[in-house]
Design a protein around this nucleic acid. Structure first.
Length: 462
RNA sequence: GGUACUCUGGCAGAACGGUUAUGCGUGGGCCUGCAAAGCCUAUACAAGGGGGUUCGACUCCCUCGGGUACCUCCA
């Protein structure tokens, strides 16, 4: 499997002959998660499920930044503690992402629970003389890391001319960044240098090393983390170990709204909760996977509607497959195999989920075609269903399960409708159909039989 | 201002130095008691502008322009 690496700007082969170790920069828990977070995390979720499906063991670490100025500010305005704020939003996070059918990470380390590790990390940086102490805190000295800027492809003098860097006379270089900030206010921890709290970037260096070792396979996050976050992580970690940090850097493009970035100031942030309520998890996942992960994707009703159309086809396909009972038959196994290969090839080639989805929809179309032509036999359906379910699992799409009781009830209603139709009592027959519609059950009349499908209720559709 | 990425038909989005992408949408049809769903079929002569290389460029090179992101916290 090849993946584009931001650092070398080339495609790199991911070694799947042994356990794959992934570190994903998660969220700062000071507010609701939004659709941008969802995209990054869903992309990594599919990557992970794909590796799972190939039998590759994956260790997946995703941090929570639970100490940060924004959390503290929020706590102050709400007259509460940072701990309460971060706990609340971590709970919200799990609620949202469980509903999005994202598999839980191997571990979700939190900055506040790794202060010891962070302090040890900083101690070594000081020992190696790449970090120094000022009256404000402990700073990493970028002049001690000659390769600074290699990830973001920035030159140090160009960064300086950006002129938007706050001046701190105590720092040796304006670009030096804090690994430890002195502070008296809560929350606060003791350190060998004085009371305070960790800087932002240090937690990821300390925690990734702790859980995954010095050199792991993939380090990822949103594109906006390339600078300064990941650049600084590289500087710290490679200074610490003297060895290369992550093997492959993967960055997921931004979600824009009408071509603009989502931001609080523009007031265009779409929370996951809100979008879930209107569209549900399947549509969101299809939407997030509809473009190449590295490119921006524009959030629009039109695109979501397109995903909805596709989802309806998928639902139909599923119910055609489980009800298939045609006596006719068409040889399809080689075709299905080919589509499955296309799906895998797409993902192997820099994780092209758009092409993988089109392979998936080809499969759906093939099944629906056979059903329409009354040629979907039980055995054929089984062959297609195996492949269909494999893809569904990797993409993280879910078709709601129904109880046997519900199914029986539906079958009974269909049987009485059939009777009425035979007796040409169409008005009464249609009443039953309407009644089923109200239960989100849609009937599909085939020549030989009538089958039903349960349509997911999508609020935005109404 | 700098840096990175990007610019394909109404929208989304591929491949490839020379062949129809594909999907959504739209038109028509099939199926049906009627619907719905689904299927079939037709439909776009697209490549930001300008140059160049080439027998031939959407694909390579140069240049101009547009967009987004980053340069400050951000997935």
């Amino acid at each position: 499997m090849k993946i584009q690496d931001t650092l070398s700007n080339t495609e790199k082969e991911l070694d799947i002959s042994k356990k794959v170790k992934i570190y994903l920069c998660g969220v700062t828990v000071y507010d609701e998660s939004h659709i941008g977070h969802a995209r990054t995390i869903i992309v990594f979720d599919v990557l992970r499920k794909y590796l799972d499906s190939k039998g590759v063991e994956v260790e997946f670490i995703q941090n929570f930044t639970d100490i940060d100025d924004k959390i503290i500010n929020r706590a102050q305005t709400e007259n509460t503690t940072a701990k309460i704020i971060s706990t609340k939003y971590i709970n919200d996070y799990f609620k949202d992402f469980d509903e999005l059918n994202v598999k839980r990470a191997t571990n979700y380390p939190k900055a506040t629970e790794h202060i010891e590790d962070i302090i040890k990390f900083i101690e070594k940086l000081i020992e190696k003389q790449v970090a120094y102490i000022t009256k404000n805190g402990v700073y990493f000295s970028i002049s001690k890391f000659p390769e600074y800027g290699k990830l973001s492809k920035k030159k140090i003098d160009e960064l300086l001319s950006g002129a938007r860097i706050e001046v701190d006379e105590a720092k040796k270089d304006p670009l030096d960044f804090a690994v430890w900030k002195f502070s008296d206010g809560e929350p606060v921890w003791n350190s060998p240098w004085g009371k305070g709290r960790p800087g932002w970037h240090i937690e990821c260096s300390a925690m990734s090393t702790k859980y995954l070792g010095e050199n792991f396979d993939i380090h990822g996050g949103g594109r906006d983390l390339i600078f300064p976050h990941h650049e600084n992580e590289i500087a710290q970690s490679e200074s610490f170990t003297g060895a290369p940090f992550a093997k492959i850097w993967v960055h997921v493009g931004m979600v824009t709204i009408n071509g603009e970035k989502m931001s609080k100031s523009l007031g265009n942030v779409k929370s996951i909760k809100h979008v879930l309520e209107n569209w549900g998890s399947n549509i969101i996942r299809l939407f997030c996977l509809s473009g190449h992960y590295s490119k921006p994707i524009d959030y629009s009703e039109e695109l979501l509607k397109e995903s909805l159309t596709k989802w309806r086809q998928v639902e139909t396909c599923y119910y055609e497959l489980i009800h298939a009972n045609s006596k006719n038959h068409e040889e399809i196994s080689s075709k299905i195999k080919k589509i499955g290969l296309e799906f895998d090839n797409a993902l192997d080639d820099d994780f092209n989920t758009h092409l993988a989805l089109s392979a998936f929809f080809q499969l759906v179309k093939e099944a629906n075609r056979l059903a329409a032509e009354e040629k979907l036999g039980k055995d054929d359906a089984q062959i297609i269903k195996t492949e269909f379910e494999r893809m569904l699992e990797i993409l993280g799409l879910t078709i709601p399960k129904m109880t046997e009781d519900e199914k029986q009830k539906i079958d009974d209603l269909i049987a009485s409708r059939e009777q009425l139709r035979k007796e040409k009592q169409f008005e009464d027959a249609d009443k039953i159909r309407e009644k089923l519609n109200e239960m989100s059950i849609e009937l599909i009349d085939h020549k030989e039989n009538t089958i039903w499908m349960k349509k997911e209720n999508i609020k935005a559709e109404n």
